[in-house]
Amino acid sequence: MSILVTGATGTVGSLIVQRLRDANAEVKALVRHPGKISFPAGVTEVAGDLADVASMRAALSSVRTLFLLNAVTPDEITQALIALNLAREAGVERIVYLSVIHADRYTNVPHFTGKHTVERMIESLDMAATILRPAYFMQNERMVQQVIENYGVYPMPIGSAGVAMIDVRDIADLAVGELLRRDRAPDRLPRVTLDLVGPDRLTGPSAAEVWSTALGREVKYGGDDTAAFEAQMASFGPGWLAYDMRLMMEGIQQHGMRGADGAVDRLEAMLGRPLRRYVDFVGETAANAKPD
């Protein structure tokens, strides 16, 4: 029996596939287009799509454990609910689901409320699952790295309420730990929900200051204007996604993104090491961008 990883070619999923193979787990990687990327030796590619019932039925055969990650799409809820229903149908009772922190609080943000709906299904049907609720990914900063470096502006309107950004490498390590714990247990384990956060509470100005130090020149915070942020995103992506991201940023400004009390200590105990810090991520990212 194997572990099926959805989103296997993405930022988080590809790391999970690699780490599972490093742990000698039997891994199936769900892909829409076989051969798109090179997986580690021993990983089985399974062609399928979360919205294609027949392909998902085939993908879930001979699977004991499921890692479910849905991209932010207009039919995200449909994809996730179909996948979970088909997993139940196939007898899969070991699940790790990647949700988002404060999914129940950001009620007007489409992809947050979508993930909360999936959480409610897992809970109402008493599915044996770990629900991972990550905060904002540090690696999202790479999308605006050129703006930061070329214009000296940190453009993400995250405000001042505080965001405990987390490194995707820590997300992957925590997800793999839960996948292996569930996969190797003799029976189904109780449901668990974990806030995945980093150790630092960042604001727009403090994030800009970290970049200033890493680059050795001034970087200013671009401010809290979410309408301008939406317009910029809509200039190179779909309008529905730009608006979704604007609503998320407004939620971040209002509520922040911080884990429950003791979340950092719990995660570091699970990892057996400290969580990665934003200052180290930025320093590494800035150094890698410099010409030799």
Rank of each mutant, 00 (worst) to 15 (best):
G162F: 05
E149G: 07
I158Q: 07
R188A: 15
Q145S: 07
Q146H: 08
E178H: 11
G162H: 06
Y154N: 00
L179E: 12
I158L: 09
Q145D: 03
D170L: 03
E149P: 08
R188K: 14
V197W: 12
M156N: 14
D173E: 07
E178L: 05
V144M: 06
P199A: 10
I171Q: 04
P157Q: 04
V153P: 13
A161T: 13
R181K: 07
G159L: 09
R188F: 14
M143A: 09
R201T: 12
Y154T: 02
R188N: 12
Q145L: 05
Y151E: 15
R169N: 11
A161P: 12
D167H: 08
T203P: 05
Q146L: 09
D173L: 02
E149Y: 05
D200A: 12
P155S: 03
S160I: 10
I158T: 02
D170N: 06
L179P: 13
D173A: 07
P186R: 00
R181G: 01
R182N: 10
D167N: 08
L194G: 05
A164I: 00
I158H: 06
A175C: 12
A185P: 10
V144F: 10
P157N: 03
G162Y: 05
I171R: 01
P186D: 11
R181F: 00
G159R: 07
P157E: 04
V163C: 10
L196M: 05
D200I: 08
G159N: 09
I158K: 04
V153S: 12
A172H: 01
S160N: 11
R188D: 12
L179W: 10
V192P: 00
L180H: 13
L189V: 11
V147F: 12
D200P: 10
I171W: 00
R201W: 12
I166L: 02
V176G: 02
L202A: 07
P155M: 00
A164E: 00
L196A: 03
R142L: 10
I171A: 01
D187H: 15
S160H: 09
V168C: 02
I171V: 10
Q146M: 09
R182K: 13
R201L: 14
I148Y: 02
S160Q: 12
L179V: 15
R181T: 01
T203F: 04
R142S: 07
L179A: 07
V197L: 12
V176P: 01
I171T: 05
V176Q: 01
L180Q: 11
G198Y: 06
M165I: 04
G152Q: 15
D195W: 04
S160D: 09
T203W: 02
D170I: 04
S160E: 13
D173M: 01
A185Y: 12
V168M: 03
I166K: 00
L180S: 09
V144C: 00
L189P: 03
T203M: 06
R142I: 06
Q145H: 05
V147T: 15
P190K: 03
V168S: 03
G152E: 15
Q146T: 08
R182P: 11
L194P: 04
V163H: 08
A172R: 02
Y154S: 00
M156I: 14
M143D: 08
G152M: 14
V192F: 02
V192Y: 03
A175I: 11
E149Q: 13
V168W: 01
D183G: 11
L174Y: 00
L180C: 10
G152P: 14
D173F: 01
D200K: 12
R169L: 09
I148P: 04
D195Q: 04
D195H: 01
